[in-house]
Structures are given as structure tokens and as C-alpha cells.
Write a protein that binds this DNA or RNA. Structure first.
Lengths: 106, 106
DNA sequence: TAGATATTTAGAAAACTATCTAATTATCTA
DNA sequence: TAGATAATTAGATAGTTTTCTAAATATCTA
């Protein structure tokens, strides 16, 4: 499972949240997604990469297209983490700077 | 209420998540908080500012100290947003780039 | 297989973020 | 009021992120 760090970074960008919103409705190719934004293909590709690195989406090639879809299980894990973080008096994960298993990402 | 954009940016940083974790246990002054990290006072101040800009914490002066505490209501709003975002088939807020009321933050 | 279409990779520029030291502001107390 | 303590603001720098154009890769189809 991707680190919660990557997930939170991924969803802290409005473009990427909108991508996820679109994918929640139905899976789409990179090009179809891009048509919803005012940015170049490579920029879209960069954002899709971050979502993929966070494991929030998965891809499969379909002919010339690469189709993106939501990775439901990671979505649910992330939800659980954030809910805990905001609702508990004491959060589970140590969000600290000292250690992290997945070694300090950025 | 602070924009969800600012909230998500605020919690996408591990230092700031740890600050929030500490404050969940008890309110603390800037200096007490700083003692938990290996960064300078001004850097801590910078992070506290971001948390404050997101309205996740509030401050009150107590003598020479400035005491930080969790802003419970915003915490709960944020939780609700994120839960919706991750659980709904269709998220409520338009996380898009085109408009936003609170005008494009970054 | 040549050309068209879809997407990613490379490399560079601009904007933003985190960090630091030095200086400033606010408050307390002897 | 002078000096000490707590915190923030100013200004600089290093690193990261977002964005772009150009080039490369993969697949389809005539």
C-alpha cells in the first residue's frame, strides 16, 4: 500500500482532485481526462503519475489508449486514515518526521 | 470557514500533522511545540502559520507565550469533506481549477 | 510498413515551499 | 525602565513542483 504521505500530497492539488472526481463517475483514458482541463498533455501525464504513485488510480492499456480508473481499496484505506486523523483524540499513524517505513518520500 | 484547499495543503506536510497530533492531546505554546522538532523557531512559526491559515488551530496569548489549540469545528468539517470525497461516488465540492469562491489560493 | 493517433519521457523555466540567521515586537520581572 | 524570555517578521537560499515544448515510444489501420 502506498504511503499516506503520497496520498495526502496527491489529493492536495485541485487538478488531481478533479481527476479523481471524474474517475469516480467512470473510467477514462488520459486523453479524455485531459479534455476536461486547460493544461498540456505532459502536464496531465505528470498529475496522473502522482495519482498512480499514490496508488489511488490504476491503468490498463486499451488499444492506443491508456485507461485510468480508481483504485477502490486504496481509496478506502485513505478515507479511514483521514477519518481517524480528524476524529480521534489520538491519531494512530505517527505523522512525525523521524521515521516512516516508506522512508521520508519528499 | 477556511478553504478545503488550505486544509488539505496544511495536512499534506508531516511536520504539521505531527503538530496537530500533539495539539490533540493538549494545547501547547509555540515553544513547547518546537521542542518536539529539529527545526528552528522561525520554521516552526511558518508551519503554525499554515495551520492557522487553514483555520485548523487557533491561538491565544498567555503572558509571554502564545498558546495553540485545535479548532475542533474546522477539524470536523474537514473530516466530513474528506470522508465524502473518498466515499461518495460523486464528491460534492467541485475541486476543479475554474472557480472556487475563495479564489485559487496558491 | 508508413502515417496517424495516444501517451509518456526529457529537459528547461517559473513559481512555490521550507529552511535558515538576523532583526523586530511583545511581555514579564527585578 | 533594563534585561530576559517568547515568538514573529524579514530577507535570503536551496530544493521541490508545475508547467511548457520537443522528442520518443506504442499501437492501430490503410
Amino acid at each position: 500500500m502506498a504511503s499516506i504521505q503520497k496520498v495526502l500530497e496527491a489529493i492536495s492539488d485541485p487538478t488531481r482532485r478533479k481527476v479523481l472526481d471524474l474517475l469516480k463517475k467512470k473510467e477514462m483514458s488520459a486523453g479524455e481526462l485531459g479534455a476536461n482541463f486547460d493544461i498540456s498533455g505532459p502536464s496531465m501525464s505528470h498529475h496522473l503519475n502522482k495519482l498512480k504513485a499514490a496508488d489511488l488510480v490504476q491503468t490498463t492499456r486499451r488499444g492506443q489508449s491508456i485507461v485510468y480508473s480508481i483504485n477502490t481499496s486504496v481509496f478506502e484505506d485513505a478515507a479511514q486514515f483521514v477519518v481517524k486523523f480528524f476524529q480521534d483524540t489520538r491519531a494512530t499513524e505517527d505523522a512525525g518526521n523521524d521515521h516512516d517505513g516508506e522512508e521520508q518520500d519528499r
